[in-house]
């Protein structure tokens, strides 16, 4: 079943058109990647889904039309978006970040269980719960962002460049975790990445964006073999 479907999505920033009609599908339970260079429209696509930029076209999530809904309402439908820069609530403590992740939920007992579950993925969190999130390293902030997103109990996780500015070994760790969460909980993930080789290892399907258009799409292993993808994005 397709959980998220984008049809002819066009978005403009003032006079500049950032998306020229994106078509994409994210099947439930899968990991899908959006690849492309800087300015290709990857981030804008995520922002259009979660209502942070105005767009035209159609964006269907789980049977709802979410185009141009307010971000808070999209979040309430079960879309957790870890934005560019990780959206860390820097002055709040680690624990408060996680509580904010569960802000929209009323089921207190389940939230408690989820806190334990999330701490299972990130065992360092309990020891540092009282620290302001600003004191965490970049990798830890990225993990906290994912943990915070999980606290929402999302149906769909949107990740914007989770590898940005992190050491390869940390990236490895984070990507393994994303894969594990996807496998164990069946969580659907749409990830934006500039690092194509990593993304193609992580995702089952991928879309390649160039200046606001989808220029290629397919299964990850297919794309990894594709000549032009290899030249432009994988560098060999």
């Amino acid at each position: 079943m397709v959980l998220l479907e984008l049809t002819q999505v066009v978005a403009t920033y003032g006079p500049v058109r950032a998306l020229h009609g994106i078509d994409a599908q994210v099947p439930e339970g899968s990991i899908v990647a959006l690849l492309g260079a800087n300015g290709a429209g990857k981030t804008t696509t995520l922002r259009a889904i979660s209502g942070m930029v105005k767009a035209t076209g159609r964006i269907r999530f789980d049977g709802h039309e979410v185009l141009n809904r307010r971000p808070e309402d999209v979040a309430r439908l079960g879309v957790a978006h870890v934005p560019e820069g990780r959206g860390t609530l820097a002055q709040l403590t680690v624990w408060e970040n996680l509580q904010m992740g569960a802000y929209i939920r009323r089921d207190r007992n389940r939230v408690k269980q989820d806190l334990d579950r999330v701490c299972g993925y990130f065992p360092w969190i309990p020891q540092r719960r009282r620290q302001p999130a600003a004191l965490l390293s970049g990798g830890e902030q990225q993990m906290l962002a994912i943990a915070r997103a999980l606290m929402l109990r999302p149906r769909l996780l949107l990740l914007d460049e989770p590898s940005l500015g992190l050491a390869p070994i940390v990236v490895r760790e984070i990507f393994d975790l994303i894969q594990a969460i996807n496998r164990e909980e069946g969580l659907t993930v749409l990830v934006v990445e500039q690092n194509a080789s990593l993304a193609l290892q992580l995702a089952r399907r991928a879309y390649v964006l160039e200046v606001g258009r989808v220029v290629l799409e397919g299964e990850s292993d297919e794309l990894a073999r594709n000549e032009s993808v290899r030249k432009s994005y994988l560098g060999y």
Binding site: E84, G85, R86, T88, A90, A134
Partner: peptide
């Protein structure tokens, strides 16, 4: 516009 980025 995006104080989040300013503080990180």
């Amino acid at each position: 516009v995006e104080p989040d980025q300013m503080s990180t």
